[in-house]
Design a protein around this nucleic acid. Structure first.
Lengths: 189, 189
DNA sequence: ATTTATACTGAATATTAGTTCAATGAATAA
DNA sequence: TTATTCATTGAACTAATATTCAGTATAAAT
């Protein structure tokens, strides 16, 4: 393996192990030595690639933000269809790539108190709840989404999705619920 | 104030401040000195009442378990009505006593990885999701709750409730969503 | 009034975990 | 081939924070 390859390999290896451990144990509860040990590398080597634990967190959040900013080309006539398709794709992606579920959770947690300020602000820069409330308002106009405060509806929807992701990580054996069950939070009966 | 009263006062004072800080900052991120400082007492005094930080966590979880085990005398004909009433009461209680919301979150978090084993197992001993799935099955029989894996439905429901509680603590200004929106996860259309 | 128990403090200590660094050997460039 | 760069390690250093403790003041008991 060339040095360039080795570097890229290590960087990714460390990053993804950090993501995994940050999510299952929590950021503060994860020791640098946990990451190093589970990769069978020295602590010194980890610091050779990332200058601090917080830097590692930061790099992950940057990746998460890039992923969320990538234009989601979801075609839809009815906004309900948008959320339905979104969840379909999310669940499908998670089945194939567990790290997507982990990233989803990391981003959500990073927005909360207890996160280093710089990181928290970054994570807060992409606000899924607010974006969705615009689409919800469309749905309310055409009568497919129930009426009421769109922001609160969006909050209920995303909280539900996040809660399910958290559950998935805590108890992987548990099967994901039907997409329709979650979309029913929005759907007008 | 008599010594007995003083003792009880301090014990509660410390316990509830710990609950508040554990929930808004996270257990690991909360320093013993944070608790002591915000109560204007010395660190030594805190250790006079509780022998360790983990002990404090344990005492809180015990209280949480007692609260959940207290028989919930909710009268209902239709299981949907049970969940509706349950949430009504929960939201009402939270409005009056913020610590109930905090306790709800602490219990949920304690069940996840990253928690000291002894505490995690204790928290896992009361499983709201499993209990509710029994009631959901009743509702499926009489046709008021949508069909499908009752445990997964229960999971979706409780994840949603938990997500909303977390949101409430992170951003208290945000208003709670309508109870009906959440119950719609269960309701058969 | 004297003694005893305990609420309380501030400083000292212990422990944990993040970070630095000098040394080694292997890959790359000259 | 020789020099240089860099991946890697393990031990040392440091910072943060949990925990202990000797001492003081005050309430309770004798």
């Amino acid at each position: 393996m060339t040095r360039k390859e080795q570097k890229e390999f290590r960087e990714k290896q460390i990053l993804f192990k950090a993501l995994e451990l940050f999510v299952i144990k929590g950021y503060s509860e994860t020791k640098i030595s946990d990451i190093a040990d589970s990769l069978n590398i020295s602590i010194g080597l980890l610091f050779h690639y990332y200058k601090s634990k917080e830097q590692l967190y930061l790099e992950l959040i940057k990746i998460g933000i890039d992923g969320m900013k990538a234009p989601q080309k979801i075609e839809y006539k009815d906004p309900i269809e948008y959320f339905s398709k979104f969840l379909d794709r999310l669940f499908e992606a998670i089945d194939k790539e567990p790290w997507i579920c982990q990233m989803f959770i990391l981003m959500a947690r990073a927005q909360k108190q207890g996160t280093p300020d710089e990181i928290r602000e970054l994570a807060l820069s992409v606000n899924q709840i607010e974006l969705s409330s615009k689409i919800i308002e469309e749905g309310q106009k055409i009568g497919s989404i129930k009426n009421g405060n769109a922001l609160a509806l969006s909050t209920a929807f995303w909280c539900s999705v996040q809660g399910i992701m958290e559950q998935k990580v805590a108890l992987p054996q548990l099967s994901l619920p039907e997409v329709d069950w979650i979309v029913d939070i929005l759907r007008k009966v």
